[in-house]
Design a protein around this nucleic acid. Structure first.
Lengths: 239, 239
DNA sequence: CGATAGTTTGAACAAACTCAAGACACGTGG
DNA sequence: CCACGTGTCTTGAGTTTGTTCAAACTATCG
């Protein structure tokens, strides 16, 4: 696999876009090279360390962000502090709710993250004159809705063991945008975040991970690194 | 309130559209009266009794349906039969996932339901030539995503008592499309469906409803009819 | 080397579930 | 009209699952 894919008009593209995943599966695939050039004048690539807040709930959105690498955690909190992770975003997802003046979730870098930031007015102008772009974003939104509904089944109807297995399977199948499933990866979330994603406590998550390890379904190294020798065996544990 | 709203061009509109809520808040609001006339040639109004299946999971979608009255229940089931309700649709929501050849949920009439059925090709053709229509549907999809994420907080982090209160509040605030909040209504779902929506058993739902009644937060008549003397008291129980 | 943050493990506890029985509304047929 | 059956709902008692609280373990970093 070469670092820069060779397209017909690669040489006309902004340097930063040439090897960007978003041009292939992400929203930039809806743009002509002229539009991409115009857009690239407004964008900037930024890096955030794990734990940094990207968007705050009920705060105005200034920029959209295309996820280039890493994992972004979307969450909501109740007044008394209980927290629920309501989604994870991987490359090449678009961060920030289109057309909303305010965010309805808190977004935080779960791992180290690379984003391509697009000022809100720039992207919205482009959307208005380019229905194909809105169409792409629509497809992403529909996919996010499907994923949210799948996760509701996990939250509402699965046991703790099934929830943890489902989480590990979710990560294995999303962590690398270029691969379907991966058998060895670093968890982008702490035990506390996993608990907030699954509606469980830290202790229950830890116990279920220990059980999967004891049963030989997964191997764990250094708390965060997971190997799955047989993905099918993990999948049957998802309920 | 008059039965037929008086708009400028009411007389040009198809008879069935004249008093239709969807023209005001729903997707038909994006259409000109010419487009509405053209579309109305393909649509038909249908009635379904409570309990009838409208879409099956993993089955092809033939028609979209605009909800005119009543409540539609969207659900998913695990292989072993565990069920989770993943959404409710009220007037004037659009039923059926745009652009998908297959449904990803089972849709069922929760109460008696009136739908305005639109053949899939007819709506998709209209969407292609009318970006404003896709935009309307996009806004509805974004709203559904917000609602799904709000509900994930309820499923993952609330107690049984808070879940039941949240459900009653959801119904009170959605059952009538013309009103913000309503203080007296019929539950569109059985205890079993409420349990499947909240990730609880029938018995737990029943006990929590009894407790709300004993505490004077709600009154119940004939199992299904609910009165909420003070909506604020219900809201504080939502967590 | 000690401090710290994240994680694991154990024991007691509580919330929600399961199983079981009974109440209530409604429809049907005697 | 009443007896009966059915489906839905409520209530109770005992059990299970996951939580809470507490302590110990491990890696990392100054």
């Amino acid at each position: 696999m070469q670092p820069v894919r060779n397209d017909i008009h690669n040489s006309d593209l902004p340097v930063l876009c040439q090897s960007c995943e978003s041009r292939h599966q992400g929203i930039c695939g809806a743009l002509t090279s002229e539009q991409l050039l115009a857009l690239a004048r407004h964008t900037r690539r930024v890096h955030h360390a794990a734990g940094q807040e990207l968007l705050a709930d009920a705060e105005p959105i200034i920029s959209y962000g295309n996820v280039l690498s890493g994992v972004v955690k979307l969450s909501k909190v109740l007044e008394d502090g209980r927290q629920q992770v309501v989604g994870l975003q991987f490359a090449p997802d678009l961060l920030g709710r289109l057309f909303a003046s305010e965010s309805r979730v808190t977004a935080e870098a779960a791992s180290d993250v690379e984003l391509c930031m697009v000022p809100k007015p720039a992207l919205e102008a482009l959307v208005r004159e380019n229905p194909a772009l809105e169409h792409r974003i629509m497809l992403q939104t529909l996919r996010e809705l499907d994923e949210a509904r799948d996760w509701m089944v996990t939250l509402g109807r699965k046991t703790a063991a099934e929830k943890v297995a489902s989480f590990l399977y979710l990560i294995a199948s999303h962590i690398d945008p270029t691969q379907e499933e991966v058998t060895s990866f670093d968890l982008p979330l702490s035990r506390a975040d996993i608990g907030d994603f699954l509606g469980l406590t830290i202790e229950t998550v830890s116990r279920q991970i220990s059980k999967l390890k004891a049963d030989g379904v997964i191997e764990i190294e250094n708390y965060r690194h997971v190997s799955v020798p047989d993905v099918a065996r993990l999948r049957v544990r998802c309920g």
